[in-house]
Design a binder for these strands. Structure first.
Lengths: 249, 249
DNA sequence: GTATACATTATTCAGTGTATAGAGTTATCG
DNA sequence: CGATAACTCTATACACTGAATAATGTATAC
């Protein structure tokens, strides 16, 4: 096989080119390879998703994967689209755009939480996949009862998505967190010596923020609060647009 | 050598451990290696910064770098801190926090624009470097005339920094952009066939956003507009804090 | 029954970061 | 001065990575 990425992304579509019937039956399918790669990435991170390792997990040897997937980069795109396809796109609960957009942001954050490696894939070609497109369409509908132009609607969604991505990045359980703690405990004395009396503000604020991180601080609260700020920002845009819309007609 | 990262970060500090005087004179210094790595990353991207390639650029052979740098991961941290140390931290022009924060965001964006690879380094240990700390301190002072608590001040700065980072990511000149155009031109027909009549909203908005991207649209305008939204969001936080501050005294 | 199409495999190549061992150079100490 | 210790640099080697090639095996189509 080694079909084009676009055809692999849409492999469930009726018009997608299917493999011929001749030859031995394939031990694994593209879909199986992708889901095995996803569970592997979920448990051991994206760096564990090597061709050999994934092939071993599938009981197949190395190069056999290239029959079903094209390249490792293509595999990553397929993984992202499969993950997005699995994100809930249930009908919106609330009537107001604010509750809808909040719903979108929370579904997005939940997706990152379930698959942190999504933060590591930046390949633009994911935009061509059915899962990504379906999600994009669904999310855009959150702004249905606003007067935003198409371009502003896209920009607004991007704004929310970027905030969500940044928040997810901040909440991400760092596998090197233990290492960082170790690094800190062995170096903070020397760092203090280097700092001396300089940068009192940075030291005070950094210490406060750091303590809050390590103790009773709820990332959930920070997330909700920040999201409210984002929604406030969008509200000013949306109200402004409606105003213009009314006055110019 | 192979000093600890913390000592290499603070290598210009008077108390930093210096190398002994014995042995042959070093062909390269840590600082030289870092700046060579930065120019290499600027021109060819971070993936071009391999140990062998950088060593070749310096006229030195592979393993010699480990005398001055410890590991490639350490090198990346040193590169980031050096870049941050070079960011202008001029005294603030305006009196109002809004102009100050805008100044910070724009300096940050300029730094990303000069060194796109900064977006690729996520190592937490950069927080230990003098350049990073000095920048953090400087940026925190932008909120000096507000009543924000230390924790909120840190959160506010993070909010701005995250928006700037996301904007930079969006504006980043993708080296695979030509490839993406090629991919698009060879696949958009097939994609259209797969899409059929589905997702009309996504297609309309996506087309509008895509066209705007390729034509007369100014990313500068989007940046300024989004930054204004971010500042609006902070304003509601700051005003609210001052209100509480006044009433509770 | 033979030709064709397909899946899978072992082998191989060009990369990567880095551990190890050694060679060469220079300041310091007896 | 000569020996030693400290230091830089180099070559070699190892365990990885993604991927190209060619060969082997297997099922369908004619």
């Amino acid at each position: 096989m080694a079909r084009d990425l676009i055809d692999l992304l849409w492999r469930d579509h009726p018009d997608a080119p299917r493999g011929g019937t001749r030859g031995p039956q394939a031990k694994v399918t593209t879909t199986q390879a992708i889901s095995a790669a996803i569970t592997l990435a979920d448990t051991e991170g994206l760096t564990a998703v090597t061709v050999r390792r994934l092939a071993a997990d599938l009981g197949v040897s190395g190069m056999a994967l290239y029959t079903h997937v094209g390249s490792r980069d293509d595999l990553l795109v397929l993984m992202v689209d499969a993950a997005r396809a699995g994100r809930p796109r249930s009908p919106y609960a609330g009537e107001h755009w604010r509750t809808r957009v909040r719903q979108v942001a929370e579904a997005d954050l939940a997706l990152y939480t379930a698959h942190w490696w999504l933060l590591d894939v930046t390949d633009q070609r994911t935009a061509l996949g059915p899962g990504t497109i379906a999600t994009y369409d669904h999310d855009l509908h959150a702004f249905d009862d606003t007067a935003l132009t198409d371009i502003d609607r896209d920009a607004a969604l991007t704004f929310v998505a970027d905030y969500t991505r940044a928040s997810a990045q901040a909440r991400r359980p760092d596998p090197g967190a233990a290492d960082m703690a170790e690094v800190w405990s062995s170096w903070h004395r020397r760092l203090a010596a280097y700092l001396g009396d300089e940068f009192p503000l940075a030291r005070r604020v950094g210490a406060a923020a750091g303590e809050v991180m390590n103790t009773s601080y709820s990332p959930e609260a920070a997330w909700v609060f920040g999201l409210d700020r984002v929604l406030d920002a969008l509200e000013s845009l949306i109200d402004h647009t409606e105003l213009i819309d009314h006055t110019e007609r």
